[in-house]
Design a protein around this nucleic acid. Structure first.
Lengths: 239, 239
DNA sequence: CGCTGGATTGACTCGGATCAAGTCGAGTGG
DNA sequence: CCACTCGACTTGATCCGAGTCAATCCAGCG
């Protein structure tokens, strides 16, 4: 049952009974959505906030020449921009990767939730800051890392995020991402990504086969990537 | 006098007298800061929110290998993340490019401002959404545009943003960005950026010399870039 | 006047794209 | 149970965009 969103928020700050009850009631009824369906498309008028209860999705844009760039992966517990409802139109699209269960929270409901539950608001703001930090990390990767470093970095990120929400506690992780998706996220061709993955396996860092990732040598993977998880902001602020 | 921040917020929604008065008092005393000084560094504990009243700055990260990646340019009127104060440490640094005048708003003051002035809060949220959209556009550029397209796209963005805040109303714009800075923002080497700028001039799209940009043929520049300004969200939502 | 930091140019190299064949595995239907 | 198909993954050969290295060039300025 989709309690991942609440668990994630709890990891950003203590929530009271009442907060949790409010969250439960706001996210209890999730819609079931199929594979590869757009939750919302670039140009659409934004509606409610989406919360991924189960399943994976990604944010993307299509360029005039048809190329696709993925800007973020959403996993269970992730939610989309808090205040999108203020915008006249979406500047990107969001599509499911797997079957998914997604809750929607209307703007008024969201506002009420945050007004009446400052601890929820706080946790949501931190979550948003993490998403922003993640985008900055992606820009850095795309601009200044080689393809193998970039791939290793993304794998590190996905593994750590998945680990943080309890998707895995072993070196193994079920990653429902095709090489095409990964390539479109990393700004390279599927052909080249394939070779990069081969190289990562050859170096004994990790393997990715038929949807399951195995981190064989974490230190190696981290050092190839130059990965520093500071941008995921797990350390909490004291005051 | 630094009214650019307020002007920018006004462009995101009507503000009342009282809102404006509150903003004026919050941002009236700006500190003067020299060239190339870090406002805050990666790893620092975040303090108040920075508001650029005058001058330019940029967000950046330094990789283990010493490479620098710039993730955003801040121009007059821009402000840094609303809720950074919630984080334990910064995941990137911010440095001035020119002499700058920057106001600082303490967290409590910020919270009070947003609580008591919903219209300010709303405008700030939209502003934040624009910043996020901009990061997504940068990721897209880095991943899927060639170097000349990417450079043209950045120039389009900077010109439009500057135009929006009234920094220029002619094809000319004073851009205090060295080729090194641009290269570090675009994820390429200064040498290659130089050649790209030469090519853009050759094609009659624009010139950039000694700190002044001249957009010679806007249509051409836009078409090279595949630029769509939707992500800057100037169209306001009706309700 | 000579220094200095950015900008410019040339020659060469190399990482990743492109193009073109395969191969593999999970269904599907005969 | 096996042939057929379809999508995803692999591999090889070749090409080109961008990086690297190394000289200048030039404007501003102490």
């Amino acid at each position: 049952m989709g309690t991942r969103f609440i668990d994630k928020l709890k990891s950003f700050g203590v929530l009271e009974e009442a907060d949790i009850a409010a969250l439960v009631s706001a996210t209890s009824r999730g819609r079931l959505i199929g594979t590869k369906v757009d939750l919302i498309r670039e140009g659409d008028r934004p509606g409610p906030v989406f919360v991924m209860l189960e399943g994976w999705a990604f944010r993307y844009k299509i360029l005039p020449n048809g190329a696709r760039q993925i800007m973020a992966f959403l996993m269970p517990g992730d939610c989309c921009d808090l205040h999108v409802g203020l915008l006249a139109e979406m500047d990107h699209s969001i599509q499911t990767i797997t079957q998914a269960e997604v809750a929607t929270i209307e703007r008024e409901q969201m506002d009420a939730l945050m007004d009446m539950h400052p601890k929820i608001a706080r946790a949501m703001y931190i979550s948003q800051l993490v998403d922003e930090g993640t985008m900055r990390a992606w820009i850095t990767s795309m601009g200044r890392r080689t393809s193998i470093e970039r791939a290793a970095h993304l794998i590190c990120e996905l593994y750590v995020r998945a680990h943080n929400i309890g998707l895995t506690s072993s070196p193994e992780l079920s990653l429902p991402l095709s090489q095409l998706l990964l390539a479109d996220a990393l700004g390279m061709t599927p052909v080249h990504l394939n070779r990069v993955l081969k190289e990562l396996k050859l170096q004994g860092a990790m393997t990715l086969q038929r949807g399951t990732l195995v981190v064989i040598n974490p230190e190696k993977l981290i050092s190839i990537a130059g990965f520093d998880e500071n941008y995921l902001h797990r350390r909490l602020r004291a005051n």
